[in-house]
Design a protein around this nucleic acid. Structure first.
Lengths: 186, 186
DNA sequence: GTCTATACCGGGATAGAC
DNA sequence: GTCTATCCCGGTATAGAC
């Protein structure tokens, strides 16, 4: 929340405002979901006005799209033991660093079609990678459960904020899930 | 979808209309969530008009409350092996019989405060029961993960409709999750 | 008692003043 | 280029005709 120092050039100011809008939108979408977040509220939080938000992003849908833009995921591959490591590393990353963009996507995944599609694609992608390394005719089912379990940890901690999970050390969660995931990846 | 036969008494007709509204609301809330379900749409689906819906239920919030009213849950207690059985039985029930009311609650749990609270209370209740039978200082964390994992199965299958899960035999899902849950309950 | 018509509000989006 | 004022739609809720 530091006040920016140099007024600098027009282009820079513009870029800075844009970034502030994006950041406010991220927080509000993550906290309240797509439907309950208003352009007006985003503008207020970013200390501008609604018209400017529309000017920069055109539509609420597009603003959400840019907020929820998924970063590239580490591919999950190799023998079971290796996949287990990669999956837990990915979970650690989600639990330790702030991913307001990801939370925005997850928050709306049950009620907003675009968000649902984004999550589904992301999980399906990982699912195929894991299933490829597994074999067996229930590989896709096992891989789906693996994906849902890691997602469930984030959900319970950051979105539902369950007692016993929201304040738990990420490493504890990871070590508790390790043997559970091992029963599915093998 | 059978057309009701006897027009019968006023009170009965009234009750029937009420039930039809409740049923339509259940389906729509379960499919689209609280915010995207309109009173108008509920009325249309129930072949009445919006005013009547309001007359019977007063407010959309109250209609949702009645739709999402949780049935009583089997208590989870006993030694670890017994709790495991009870948890899996509860999961089987959720996977095999249609619980549109429960799905309505789950659909909105990330975006509607009342739904979030309902789910949180339900999980927390189960969590305490499981934690009581476990011991260890991370009992609540383990119990939370147990709850989230079973919830994740329903989520992935009925709400996200993940490939490899939406068409999976419930018994397969249960048997895959059994060893995973065993690593957390012990 | 049931439904038609409408009030009222707040949302996203737009046009035009400065 | 930034903001004020406004449009228009669709939501919940209500009042009054039948």
């Amino acid at each position: 929340m530091s006040t920016e120092p140099a007024p600098s050039s027009r282009a820079e100011r513009r870029e800075r405002t844009r970034a502030r809008i994006l950041s406010s939108a991220r927080d509000l979408f993550a906290e309240n979901g797509f439907d309950r977040t208003t352009i007006r509220a985003v503008a207020t939080a970013a200390a501008t006005d609604p018209a400017l938000v529309m000017r920069y992003f055109g539509t609420k849908e597009e603003l959400f799209r840019q907020v929820a833009e998924a970063g590239v995921e580490e591919p999950i591959a190799g023998p079971p033991g290796r996949m287990e490591e990669l999956l837990l590393a990915s979970l650690r990353d989600k639990l330790t660093t702030e991913h307001a963009g990801t939370l925005a996507l997850l928050r709306s995944m049950l009620t907003h079609p675009a968000a649902a599609e984004g999550v589904r694609q992301s999980i399906t992608e990982q699912q195929r990678q894991v299933a490829a390394g597994l074999g067996g005719d229930d590989a896709m089912t096992r891989a789906a459960l693996v994906g849902m379990i890691t997602l469930a940890a984030v959900l319970g901690r950051d979105l539902l904020r369950l007692e016993g999970l929201q304040d738990a050390d990420p490493e504890v969660i990871i070590e508790l899930l390790r043997p559970a995931l091992q029963t599915l990846i093998r």
